[in-house]
């Protein structure tokens, strides 16, 4: 196979580029915000893509890009401390370097959605990748119709992007609603799971002219999808981003497969009709 094809002359697909921490601050007890910059260039991602971030000697982890590509000069991520690699990221300080490969995976096809209403469901850490699409839409506001943004968190301590959510709430060009699953005395807003927000906007939705985005914990998808289908949404208009263990990011290692689909190549962003036949998807 390899005779003279020169395929061995390609650059290593496992080789990271250096990345520098611009700033970082905690968002919750386990989630930390990071602004990163590459040496003199942009990451070149599209909304919804991810990258492999690494510290040589500790390891590598797939992390969603949270900023919109409309933001230039740097990009943002929110990293949840869930294992040894992410724990090491939490120790990074401004000026520290780490490695990056990517961007990888499919993206939210925002250009194809021009003229459509947008309905975002972001639950928990799902808001992190979704934010790249939300801010992309807001930065290109005239391209889209109505924008609805529904966010949910398990409790008050898990809320992410608190200042940004405040600005979305005040922004007249979108309708923003937030809920937390378990209320507390300090919380004056909505309580209940994310689907309980749907009745509050239902009369203003046009299911046949709206693209719905769902990103959240595994358990959430089927409940939101059920509601959307009941309202008359077609599966082709429902976009999900699915989490799997994307170890290599380049369609080789096999960890991220849903049935025979490599999520790092054909996902993480899928339309619902594209995955309906997969038994392991939802």
């Amino acid at each position: 196979m390899c005779e003279g094809c020169g395929c061995h002359e390609h650059e290593s697909i496992y080789m990271p580029e250096p990345l520098t921490v611009v700033q970082t601050h905690p968002m919750t007890e386990r989630d930390r915000f990071f602004e990163f910059k590459l040496n003199g260039k942009d990451l070149g991602h599209k909304p919804g893509q991810f990258a492999e971030i690494s510290i040589p000697g500790i390891g590598e982890a797939p992390i969603s890009v949270s900023s919109s590509p409309t933001k230039k000069g740097s990009f943002e991520m929110v990293i949840r401390k869930v294992g040894k690699v992410t724990a090491a990221f939490h120790d990074l300080k401004p000026g520290d370097t780490l490695g990056v490969r990517g961007p990888f995976g499919t993206h939210f096809p925002m250009d194809e959605f021009k003229g459509k209403d947008l309905l975002f469901f972001g639950a928990g850490i799902g808001l992190v990748p979704l934010r790249s699409a939300i801010n992309y839409a807001l930065d290109n506001r005239s391209d889209y119709g109505k924008i609805f943004l529904l966010c949910g968190f398990t409790d008050i301590s898990q809320r992410l992007f608190i200042d940004e959510m405040e600005s979305w709430k005040k922004n007249p060009s979108l309708e923003f609603l937030e809920t937390i699953d378990r209320g507390s005395p300090q919380w004056k807003g909505n309580t209940g799971v994310i689907t309980t927000l749907i009745p509050k906007i239902k009369d203003r939705l046009s299911p046949r002219n709206t693209k719905a985005f769902i990103v959240g914990p595994p358990v959430m998808y089927k409940f939101v999808i059920l509601e959307l289908r009941n309202m008359g949404f077609r599966d082709a208009d429902v976009i999900v981003s699915l989490e799997r263990r994307m170890k290599c990011g380049v369609g080789k290692c096999g960890h991220c497969q849903i049935d025979g689909v490599y999520v790092c190549q054909e996902g993480p962003v899928f339309t619902l009709d594209g995955i309906a036949h997969l038994v392991e998807a939802l």
């Binding site: 000697g57 040894k84 724990a87 090491a88 120790d91």
Partner: peptide, 10 residues
């Protein structure tokens, strides 16, 4: 090595 490097052993 993992403990000295400040990470958790696999």
């Amino acid at each position: 090595k993992a403990l000295v490097f400040g990470t958790t052993p696999d």
